[in-house]
Amino acid sequence: MAEEKELNGLRVDKITAILDSMRDDPATLKAVTGPWKSRVVWQGGFKAKAYMRKHVVQMDEPEGLDASDSAASAHEQLLSAIGSCLTVGYVLNATKRGIKIHDLEIALEGNFDNILKWAGHSPSGNPGYPSVKAKCFVRADADEKTLRELWQAAIDGSPVTQTVARPTQIVTEFEKI
């Protein structure tokens, strides 16, 4: 049996087959499309736990907010989610093009526009990040032009990045128990 080709920690044939199947098989496409789910349960104070399939992620707020800082905050995890999604996209695109990545790191940061809105001291304004900076550092076996193309493809194809970057409707509901 031929040995499976691995690149960047991925099985090249397998990932190619999955990508093709997303295009060719409606059931696969449906499974990958969603719905994606998370259930967030309050743990007291500013702590929360997010349950996603078999995974649990803790969240808390920094000590400056009189919280216990036992975990990263949701707004930090949003940055991490963008970075992680860009990482996945970069690796996917590099692997598709047969490019070996040695190191990949993305540094993200954002400043809130008007956090006084969150604090209840300001009636208007955007309490969130008006922009997020994401800098990619990569060492890989390709020229700079190619590596920049991969970065752009990762940005354009990133579900999380594009969710944040585009106007996204958050459909909220409420129920008192």
């Binding site: 190191d103 790191e105 540094a107 940061e109 800098k135 550092f137 060492r139």
Partner: peptide, 11 residues
Amino acid sequence: ILRALDVPAFA
């Protein structure tokens, strides 16, 4: 420090 130097940790 990494941000001040603008370098990745892997470097």
